[in-house]
Computed example of a mutant assay.
Amino acid sequence: MLTSNPFAELSASVPPAIMQTFVVVMAFLVVAGTLVDIVHKRSARYFFDEWRRSRNRARRPVGGGQMVSIAVQTAVVDVMTSGEFCNMRRRLAHLLTMYGFVIYVVTTAILVFAYPTPATPAPASLPILWYIGALMVCFGGYWFWFFIRVDVAAEGNSPFRLVRADVFIVALVLSVTFGLIWALLQTAGSVAWAYVFLALYLIATTVLFGSIPWSKFSHMFFKPAAALQKRVAEANGTRSNLPAPADAPMKLGSVVKHAHHY
Rank of each mutant, 00 (worst) to 15 (best):
residue 102 V to S: 02
residue 236 N to L: 09
residue 169 I to G: 00
residue 249 P to S: 12
residue 53 R to C: 05
residue 185 L to C: 03
residue 103 I to L: 11
residue 29 L to E: 12
residue 33 G to E: 07
residue 57 R to S: 14
residue 200 L to V: 11
residue 57 R to K: 15
residue 196 V to Y: 09
residue 39 V to I: 12
residue 227 A to N: 03
residue 138 C to A: 15
residue 240 S to C: 11
residue 63 G to W: 11
residue 172 L to C: 08
residue 198 L to D: 00
residue 91 R to K: 08
residue 144 F to V: 00
residue 201 Y to E: 07
residue 13 S to Q: 05
residue 224 P to L: 01
residue 156 G to P: 10
residue 33 G to L: 06
residue 100 G to H: 01
residue 87 N to Q: 09
residue 99 Y to I: 02
residue 109 A to M: 09
residue 84 E to V: 13
residue 151 D to H: 14
residue 159 P to M: 13
residue 243 P to S: 13
residue 246 A to R: 10
residue 39 V to F: 08
residue 13 S to T: 08
residue 86 C to W: 15
residue 218 S to T: 07
residue 104 Y to F: 13
residue 164 R to I: 13
residue 180 L to A: 07
residue 207 V to F: 09
residue 220 M to I: 13
residue 141 G to V: 03
residue 239 R to E: 03
residue 213 P to D: 08
residue 102 V to M: 10
residue 149 R to I: 07
residue 185 L to V: 01
residue 138 C to K: 02
residue 142 Y to C: 04
residue 37 D to M: 06
residue 59 R to E: 15
residue 66 Q to T: 12
residue 2 L to H: 14
residue 167 V to T: 14
residue 76 V to F: 04
residue 106 V to C: 06
residue 82 S to Y: 06
residue 95 L to F: 03
residue 114 A to K: 14
residue 121 P to Q: 07
residue 172 L to V: 06
residue 96 L to G: 02
residue 201 Y to S: 10
residue 141 G to K: 00
residue 169 I to M: 11
residue 202 L to C: 04
residue 172 L to W: 04
residue 175 S to L: 07
residue 186 Q to S: 07
residue 134 A to F: 02
residue 87 N to I: 07
residue 232 V to C: 08
residue 190 S to Y: 14
residue 256 V to G: 13
residue 146 F to I: 09
residue 181 I to Y: 06
residue 85 F to E: 07
residue 205 T to C: 10
residue 211 S to Y: 06
residue 91 R to D: 03
residue 89 R to F: 06
residue 67 M to P: 02
residue 250 M to A: 15
residue 41 K to R: 12
